[in-house]
Structures are given as C-alpha cells and as structure tokens.
Amino acid sequence: MSRGKRLALLLSTFAIFALMLTGCQEPAKSVFDPKGTAGEMNLDLIMTAIYIMTFVCAVVMIIFVYVLIRYRQKPGDNSIPKQVEGSMKLEMLWIIIPIILLAILAVPTLSTTFSLAETPNEKDALKVKVTAHQYWWEFEYPELGIKTAQELHIPVGKKVHFELTSDDVVHSFWVPELGGKQDLTPGQTNTMWLDAKEPGVYAGRCAELCGASHALMNFEVVAQEQEKFDQWVAKRQKPSSEPQTAEQEAGKKVFSQNCMSCHAIDGTKLKTKGDKAPNLTGISERNKIAGLLENNDKNMEKWLKHPDQIKPGTYMPSFDFLNKKDMNNLKAYLESLE
C-alpha cells in the first residue's frame, strides 16, 4: 500500500463526513433531538452505548494503525518473525474489559427497558387506541368518544397511553422525536407510552413493511398545550358536519352515494358510518390529505381522482368518473367539515 493511496482513502473519508455535515444540519426528525420523555430515555441509552463503543473503536483503531505501519515487511527483509502461541494475560485482558464495558451498558439498559414498559397511571394519562390499516392510521380516544385518522392530537406534558393493534398486517408505530417504536400485530394489543414536552408537529412513520405503500403510511402527531387540546376535543365532540350551502348540500348527497359505506363523518344524520376507511370528521382542519399531501383544494381533487397514483395499492377507489359538478360539490362539502 503506497502512501498516496492511504492519503486518498483518508481524504475521501473526510469528504464524506464534510458532505454529511453540510447536508444534515437540521434533519426534520432526529433521534438526537428528542421532544419527549421516552425519546430522552432512549437517547440517554444510545449515547451511553455510543461513548462506550467509540472507546472500543478507538482502542482497536490505535492498535490497528500502529500494527499496520510498524510491522510491514520491509523490502529485502526475509527473516521469519517469532511465532507466538498466544498470551494468557493479554487474552484475559480482552475478555474481562469487554465484560466490564458490557455491564456498564447492561445496567441502564435493564432499568430503562422496564421503565418504558410501565403502564402509566390511569388518572394522569390520556388513553389512545391506535389501529393500523393498509395504509392509514386510526386514532380513537375511548374516554373522550372521539375517532380520528392520520393526525393524532395530544396535550403537552401528559403521558399518552397507547393501545396498539392492527386490522390487517403487521405495522409499526414510530414517532422518532417522541420515542421508540412498537409493532401493531393483528390479533394482539400492545401498549406503550409517549409524551411531548413542547408543542409542535411531529412526523410519524410506519416502520414495518406493510405493503406497496409502506413508504407513504405517514402520520403526524400534533402536540398542543392542554387548553388548545381541550378546544380541539370539544370541537371534535361537537363537529360542524352539516352542510351550510346548496353546493355543500349537493356534495353531501354525492358523499352518501359514493363514500359513506367506507368513510364515517360524525355529527351528521347519514344512514351508515363506514369503518373501513379514515373517519373524515373535521377533515378541513387537518394538515394533510391521506397523511401525505398538503391539504388544499387541488390536492383533494388529485386524491379523489387518482388515489392509486398517490398511494399505490390503496383500497380507496378512483372517483374520476364523477362529473365536474359532482366533484366540486363533494369537495365543497368535505372542505366545509370542521
């Protein structure tokens, strides 16, 4: 190995680091910047592990580099090195030190594992039932009598006790800034708790391969101050779902003919409350359509017309057969839902 080549390697490594640092000064959602207690607990442990492992890597690298430079075969040197069998002392050293390092990691690991598995006190916690579907999230607040989808509202500073299950395949619930993930398995209910320490909108992802649109099964957690959260709850409990204009009235009719068997809207006198697809109560106030597109009129039409192009494999059928008027009325109705 010539000196030039080693230099090239070193430089390219640095180049990668430099690029990386410029590229990710502010990643949107980072495990390193937790906004909740669980996330902080995870991070504490991650950092402990990183420190220990950096130490291990440093020791290995120092010996490694030293050995490679010091013990190269010099040209013309054909002597036979001393054949060493081993060394009891040295080998004991690298058995015992790793054990000690692992013990240092193991103790907080165990205590954190158990604290994260605790069930929060009934009174202090908000209960949310999460049901995953291909490819959307259903959030139910059993104590408040609210059902919503794609956008999870939680109060700041309060533990949220999740009950997680799936309606079809295995999914995994992950809000990187608030904490770790938990699988949602059909036929099984898992629990976990999270909280948010400051208000904000936190991105959530499905982390277990669940089908064609696994990559797009996004959701958002909106953490609000208790007061604002209560307002939101009040509004969800008494939604304004009845049409105000003739256009909206016509839209409701289109809805009842085409959408009702899958989608529910609370606070209306529709005959059925579909439960195969997201509950659309107050959809105009959500940040996103389908958890993915910015909530505006253009995107709503795009989604209604060609959902399969936006989320491959979605169960939502295409509604491009609606005539222009029906489409506009339907949109007007949906956009009036508060």
Partner: peptide, 14 residues
C-alpha cells in the same frame, strides 16, 4: 451491541 439494548433498539429497529 448498540442494537442489543432494547430501548435503543426501539429507535433503531426497522
């Protein structure tokens, strides 16, 4: 080893 620690793994996993 980092992955072996469950609370860390909740973040790393998948």
């Amino acid at each position: 080893v980092m992955l072996a620690s469950p609370p860390g793994d909740y973040q790393y996993h998948d």
